[in-house]
Amino acid sequence: MSPAYIFGGLLLGATAGVLSGIIGIGGGILLIPALAYMYGMSQLKAQGTSLAILLLPVGFFAVLPYYRDGQVDIKVAALVAIGFAVGGWFGGTWAQHLPAIVLRRGFAALLVIVAAKLFFTK
């Protein structure tokens, strides 16, 4: 694994963790598109890897069929999960100091941006 590969996974995890802590999202809405674009994964592999990232807190049984079919990248999942945990702690801490309107509008803006990207990308 190259340093860029490792750093990219940790940075993605930290970003998803911060967003999760601040506005309550980060899993599928951020990780799946990011895994597809940053790591060139198919939709299915990005979904399986996203589930593996969230495996301990959420999806042990959901990830098993993806894993059995070879649709999980364990290395990327582990790297992103580490960054996600650290970023989630920071994001959750920062969110306690932000006004509710900022959190709500930030969440809405992110949803619009992600929706537009998904809608207009072939």
Rank of each mutant, 00 (worst) to 15 (best):
G28D: 12
G28C: 05
I29Y: 07
I29F: 11
L31F: 02
I32A: 09
A34Q: 06
L35P: 10
A36W: 00
Y37P: 02
M38I: 12
Y39M: 00
Y39C: 11
G40L: 13
S42M: 08
K45R: 09
K45G: 04
A46L: 04
A46E: 14
A46F: 02
Q47C: 05
Q47T: 14
G48K: 09
G48S: 10
S50D: 15
L51F: 11
A52C: 11
I53P: 08
I53C: 14
L55D: 00
L55G: 10
L55R: 02
L56W: 11
L56I: 15
V58Q: 12
V58R: 01
G59S: 14
G59T: 13
F60P: 05
F60H: 08
F60L: 15
F61P: 00
V63F: 08
P65W: 00
Y66V: 03
Y67H: 04
R68K: 04
D69S: 13
G70W: 01
G70F: 11
Q71T: 00
Q71P: 03
Q71K: 10
V72W: 02
D73S: 14
I74F: 10
I74N: 01
I74E: 08
V76N: 09
V76T: 15
V76K: 10
A77Q: 10
A77I: 07
A77W: 02
A77Y: 03
A78G: 10
A78K: 00
A78M: 12
L79H: 08
L79A: 05
A81S: 15
A81D: 05
A81K: 00
A81I: 10
A81Y: 01
I82L: 14
A85G: 14
A85K: 00
V86C: 13
G87A: 11
G87I: 06
G88E: 08
F90T: 10
G91S: 08
G91I: 00
G91T: 01
G92D: 05
T93I: 08
W94H: 06
A95L: 07
A95D: 06
Q96Y: 08
L98Y: 08
A100M: 10
A100E: 11
A100N: 06
A100Y: 06
I101N: 01
R104I: 04
R104Y: 09
R104C: 01
R105I: 12
R105V: 09
R105M: 10
G106K: 11
F107Y: 11
A108M: 14
A109F: 13
A109H: 02
L110A: 07
L111N: 07
I113W: 05
I113L: 15
A116I: 15
A116C: 06
K117M: 08
L118C: 07
